[in-house]
Write a protein that binds this DNA or RNA. Structure first.
Length: 202
DNA sequence: CCGGGGATTATCT
DNA sequence: GATAATCCCCGGC
């Protein structure tokens, strides 16, 4: 069990990084409690050349400022006015590449996750989908800009490898208005896992 | 199993 | 004022 270091994130191949993150363990320590889950779904957002990416064409605002931070930084923003979406920033400083984490298979701190999401029982809705997993892990936009080499949010490798044939890919979810970029197969997921969100429509 | 629509508000134009 | 990298519920088949 070892924490992913800065070299993992600073590479310039965000699509490879998104695929490699499947099977890794996302860990948060919020309010003194550890919660974690194995990543089963992720999407790559390829910076300035990707119309679905917040940094497309070099667009830079207060919201997406942390996309321009060095690889290994958290970028968290609010979507649809109420959901906090967690991204892993990759590549060099000033390059807005990132990976959106879309689903985890819960491991540690499940009682706390139930409390945070106000659920009674564990089912797939606990940590399936980017909004749900952020709520369960206690991640909010206040955590945007944190270093993933620190203690609040980090990603661990426990050595368990997912065989290539168990990793599927598809178009990304919810980016239909991104023109040509909507067709890129930048979404990766662990086939058959309960915590993978619905398949993209067509 | 699948599609439609409402909730809810930060962010950008 | 419009949009949005979502989620949940409901009704129909």
């Amino acid at each position: 069990m070892k924490k992913l270091g800065i070299k993992f994130y600073e590479r310039d191949q965000v699509i490879d990084i998104a695929r490699e993150l499947i099977g890794k363990i996302l860990v948060t320590k919020v309010d003194g409690v550890c919660t974690s889950g194995r990543i089963v779904e992720a999407e790559a957002y390829q910076g300035v050349i990707d119309r679905a990416c917040h940094g497309f064409g070099g667009r830079r605002t207060a919201r997406n400022e942390h996309m321009y931070a060095p690889g290994g930084t958290a970028y968290v923003y609010i979507c649809y006015g109420m959901h906090h979406l967690f991204n892993v920033v990759t590549n060099k400083p000033e390059v807005p590449d990132a990976v959106l984490i879309r689903g985890i298979d819960p491991l540690e701190g499940i009682t706390t996750m139930l409390k945070r999401t106000r659920k009674k029982l564990v089912d797939r809705t606990l940590t399936r989908g980017p909004g749900n997993l952020s709520r369960a892990l206690g991640i909010t936009k206040l955590n945007s800009g944190l270093k993933l080499t620190g203690n609040t949010i980090c990603i661990m490798d426990d050595g368990k490898m997912i065989p290539q044939h168990e990793i599927g890919c598809s178009k990304r979810i919810g980016v239909e208005s991104a023109g040509e970029a909507a067709n890129y197969c930048y979404r990766f997921y662990h086939k058959g896992n309960l915590f993978v969100s619905a398949s993209p429509s067509k």
